[in-house]
Amino acid sequence: MLSIQELEQTATQVRRDIIRMVHGASSGHPGASLGCADFLVALYFKIMKPDPGQFTMDGAGEDLFFLSNGHLSAGWYSVLARYGYFEVSELDTFRKMGTRLQGHPATAEGLPGIRISSGSLGQGLSVAIGAALAKKMNHDDHLVYCLMGDGELQEGQNWEALMFAAGKKVDNLVAVVDYNGVQIDGPNDKVLPLGDLQEKFEAFGWNVLTMYGNDMTEVVETLKKAQWFTGQGKPVMIVMTTHMGFGVDFMMDNHEWHGVFPNDTQTQTALEQLNETIGDY
């Protein structure tokens, strides 16, 4: 069982991986991956703890995770590799020809840990609901988690899914919104205001929790609380406030780092801010 400090060290290594992967590929989306590193590490290493040696598509008897905002691929791949789904050396192939680590997550290349493609936004919550319903039909009492972006909530399909999950009592589902407040073109409030997310989700019939997503202790505790809230007739939503680009000062809270790769100098600066904790790939 990893301590909070060990989880933090893993998250720091994941952030190093993200910078090095995006730099190595000369493309990718560092911002939100950096912001969600703590959450993804906590989810895999402390909460879900699936068996990385026995990846199965159906994930029977395990918790499942779906990434709706597929542009967080660098962060997710790093966590999957660090967790043991595949060799960390494979992270070096990110976004390169012939890789299993496609620009956005995909199943075609058979990368362990990935169950569906994502990247075109707004689809992941529906898929997670389907997987959660299948778990209920299969009398499998494990949970389904789904991470979504905040800007992604501008896609209408999310609101179809939100209405459905509450209306049909899909209560083995925990959705998490990465509420970093920015999207490609700028702050959400400038692009299209999201309004009061907590009120909206509550009005849709969800149990809503909030957390600060860049504090490992708070992330772990809130996720445990979310587990406790499941099975009570309502789906569970966590509005997770994060800093896009967390861990690298010049990327933090800056929408320009949504989908831009750092040059050599910037990479050097970024890596100086992120200690190598459990070894680079």
């Binding site: 159906d58 994930g59 029977a60 898929v127 609901i129 389907g130 997987a131 299948a134």
Partner: peptide, 10 residues
Amino acid sequence: GIAAGLTIGG
């Protein structure tokens, strides 16, 4: 999307 998710559970 739900249909796609259901296939994951067989």
